[in-house]
Write a protein that binds this DNA or RNA. Sequence first.
DNA 1: TTAGTGACTGCAT
DNA 2: CATGCAGCCACTA
Length: 110
Amino acid sequence: MKTKTQEFSFYKEVYKIVSKIPKGRVTTYGNIAFILGKPRAARAVGYALNVLKKEETEIPWQRVINSQGMISFKGDIFRANLQRKLLEQEGIHFDKNDKIDLKKYGWLNL
DNA sequence: TTAGTGACTGCAT
DNA sequence: CATGCAGCCACTA
């Protein structure tokens, strides 16, 4: 029955992957979802990070962005601003459109 | 169990 | 090139 309450939580996998992102690199929600075997679960990934930021602030959630190479949180512009700052500190460069070049900084990107 | 929400993505207009 | 709409996944009430 699913007797066990899924000791393997989707969130946990997300956290684990995010923690593996090397400094100075970024990845997208879709990419993480793809690694988990569900390329369409990008939303769930973002949802996971949403809960993450309030408890496991130790996770480099800042390195996770959308497929556009930009920061999405519109509602939490404060977080977005913070994220941009943190990424710049890691050496990631934003272009004039506040966009990151995934070809250059994308994790596991070729 | 059904319904609703959300840090997303891709295609259509 | 910029918006809009629908689809998918996991979680909460």
